[in-house]
Design a protein around this nucleic acid. Structure first.
Lengths: 94, 94
DNA sequence: ACTTTTTGGTTTACAATATAAACTATTTTA
DNA sequence: TAAAATAGTTTATATTGTAAACCAAAAAGT
């Protein structure tokens, strides 16, 4: 029987964000927006969801007098991502 | 840049159906329902969507006087599934 | 100096999607 | 022959995703 897929990760944009964050120490909002090719509004909402689930941490500061939103994947996020990938493998092994 | 994921396939139930259909010559409604652990209503709707997209073919007949819905993946379905899996790999390679 | 544009976002409203509940028709069983 | 099981479909609702509208500050143009 196929395992359920974590609905929080089974979303193109949130998965993309997690996929990017797992490869870097941290990433700011603008970089994530460019890499995922998403709109700011959508990214903002999805980052909040990941943050509320404890999958990422978000730190807001200012750099050169402009707001700077920095994101990091958490341990919980890494674990959930790995579990998701494992479950997904059953779906895509051809 | 991450590629877009075919929204028709990026759904747990539809992906599960396609994943199952790619391994067999054909499958009936009840078998798909059991394997995907889905409700009949949901499965019915999602099969229709896959069928309308031309990813599967649906044949309705009767066996032992009971309705029998038989599904098969199409060439287009196989191609789309493979493209989806390829795009997805960029998201999950850790 | 002040108006326009750009940057870096958030909030909100709407559209799309997934899902379950309700329903239909036939068949089997008690 | 009434009840329950089989094999689904249709419809209504809840959830989700997404974009449009908005906000504040800074930079750039005139």
């Amino acid at each position: 029987m196929l395992k359920d897929l974590d609905p929080l990760l089974h979303s193109q944009l949130r998965l993309g964000v997690m996929s990017l964050l797992i490869t870097v120490e941290s990433a700011d909002f603008t970089w994530l927006r460019e890499k995922t090719n998403s709109t700011a509004g959508n990214l903002s909402v999805q980052l909040d969801k990941l943050s509320e689930a404890g999958y990422i941490s978000i730190e807001k500061s200012f750099k050169a007098k402009k707001p700077l939103t920095t994101c990091r994947i958490t341990k919980k996020g890494i674990k959930s991502f790995e579990e998701y990938v494992n479950s997904l493998k059953d779906y895509i092994k051809t």
